[in-house]
Amino acid sequence: MAVPPDNWEPRIVGFLCNWCAYQGADLAGTSRMTYAPNVRIVRVMCTGRIDPTFVLKAFQSGADGVIVAGCHPGDCHYTEGNYNTMRRTALLRRLLSQMGIEPERFRLEWVSAGEGAKWAQIADEMAAAIKAKGPLAWWENVREA
């Protein structure tokens, strides 16, 4: 794998639930917190909507990292959606590891509507961690030599 250029920035896809994490990210905005611009957000109504296929698609499309952020367990707006996320993530993590995608590239976080600061911190941490790991560049992995 070629060394990435110095100005390479990770691209990270974030799947955020409407009621908690997305609101938390909005709060970081209304509070004018500053954080790294590497996370691009897809809004879903509940993390329970997140098919592991979406995460795989993100990596396939060129993401260097993926975050899934939802309500704290017990607080899901739809009661139990995030427990499904928890269960699917348990299996997905193992699959990603077997695929050679380092565990740091996928993160599951619980962010409530009031946790703007937490969201900003997660975005910063993830950007730094992936920057250190380097690009995933999956399209190169499947390029026919």
Binding site: Q60, Q98, M99, G100, W138, N141
Partner: peptide, 15 residues
Amino acid sequence: SLLRRVRLEGNALPA
């Protein structure tokens, strides 16, 4: 599949 194969650069980790 979407990802098609295990990452080439590092060898596949045994299960």
